[in-house]
C-alpha cells in the first residue's frame, strides 16, 4: 500500500468517527439526539475548548509539568533499572535472594502506592515522578537483566578468546546487548512514564494534564475532559514518534525483517 493511500485511509477513519460523533450528538432523532451532549459533548465544543487552552496559553504550563514528570520518571527509573539489572545478572546469588521480593513488588498494582508517595513526597511533582519510576524501573530492569543473561555463549567465548578483560566484556558485550533489549522496550517504558505522571496528577495535584482532566470532571465539564484526553493523546503520539526516531538511530545494527539482504 502506498504511503499516500495509507495516509488518506487513516485520515478517513478520523473524519468518519468525528462526523458520527457530531451527528449523534447534535441531530435530534425523535425530539432529542441519540447521545446527550451533556454526557458525550460534541466535537465542536471539544475543539473550542482545546483552541481556548492554546489561545490563552494556559495549557503550556500543564504540558510542561507533565512532560517534566514523565522525563524525570523515565530517566530515574531507567538508571535504576540498568544498575540493578546489571547487578542482578552478574551476581546470580543476589538475584536469587531478591527474586521473590522483586516479583512481589512488581505484582503490586502501582496505583495503591500513590497515596503513600503523596504522603512522602507531597503534592508537588516528586510524588508523580516516584509513581512513574516504579513503573519504568521494572520494565527496564527486566529487559537489562534479560539482555545481560541472554548474550550468546559463543559470542561470550569469542570475546574472551579475543582477550577481553572483565571490564571490556562489560563495555563491548554486556552493555550493548542490555541496551538493545532496553531500547526494544523503549516505547513501553516511555509510555509508562507518562501514565505514571498523569495518574499521579489525577489522584491529587495542582497542575498537569491529569489535573486538568480531574478539574473538568469535577464540574461535569465533559468537553473539558475530552479536550484533556485529546491533548494527552497528541502529546503521547509526539513522544512516541520521537522515541521511534531515537530507536532507529541507536539500533542500526539490528536486522529489520523486511530488509532485503544483498
Amino acid at each position: 500500500m502506498s504511503y499516500i493511500r495509507l495516509l488518506s485511509l487513516q485520515v478517513a477513519v478520523a473524519v468518519v468517527s468525528l462526523a458520527l460523533w457530531h451527528l449523534l450528538t447534535t441531530i435530534p432523532i425523535g425530539g432529542k439526539p441519540l447521545l446527550p451532549p451533556f454526557f458525550f459533548s460534541t466535537p465542536l465544543d471539544v475543539a473550542a475548548q482545546v483552541y481556548k487552552w492554546f489561545a490563552d496559553g494556559s495549557i503550556w504550563r500543564h504540558l510542561w509539568i507533565t512532560l517534566t514528570e514523565a522525563m524525570l520518571a523515565f530517566v530515574i527509573g531507567s538508571i535504576g533499572g540498568i544498575l540493578v539489572g546489571f547487578w542482578f545478572a552478574r551476581q546470580p546469588m543476589v538475584a536469587a535472594v531478591f527474586d521473590p521480593y522483586v516479583k512481589m513488588i512488581n505484582a503490586l498494582p502501582r496505583i495503591v502506592l500513590a497515596p503513600i508517595f503523596t504522603l512522602w513526597f507531597g503534592l508537588g511533582i516528586m510524588s508523580k515522578v516516584a509513581l512513574g519510576v516504579t513503573l519504568v524501573f521494572f520494565i527496564v530492569f527486566f529487559n537489562v537483566y534479560q539482555g545481560v543473561k541472554e548474550v550468546s555463549p559463543t559470542i561470550l567465548a569469542n570475546a574472551r578468546m579475543l582477550g577481553m578483560s572483565e571490564r571490556q566484556l562489560m563495555r563491548h558485550v554486556y552493555w550493548p546487548s542490555a541496551l538493545s533489549w532496553m531500547f526494544s522496550s523503549l516505547h513501553t517504558s516511555v509510555g509508562f512514564a507518562v501514565v505514571g505522571a498523569v495518574v499521579g496528577e489525577y489522584l491529587g495535584s495542582a497542575a498537569g494534564l491529569g489535573y486538568l482532566i480531574l478539574q473538568a470532571e469535577g464540574t461535569f465539564d465533559i468537553a473539558g475532559v475530552f479536550a484533556g484526553m485529546f491533548v494527552l493523546a497528541v502529546f503521547v503520539v509526539i513522544i512516541d514518534w520521537m522515541v521511534t526516531l531515537i530507536e532507529r538511530r541507536l539500533l542500526v545494527w539490528r536486522p529489520v525483517a523486511a530488509e532485503t539482504r544483498t
Binding site: T154, N158, P176
Partner: peptide, 11 residues
C-alpha cells in the same frame, strides 16, 4: 567458532 560469533552491534 562454528556458530555465529561476531558481535552483531559492531560493524
Amino acid at each position: 567458532f562454528q556458530a555465529e560469533a561476531l558481535f552483531p552491534w559492531k560493524t
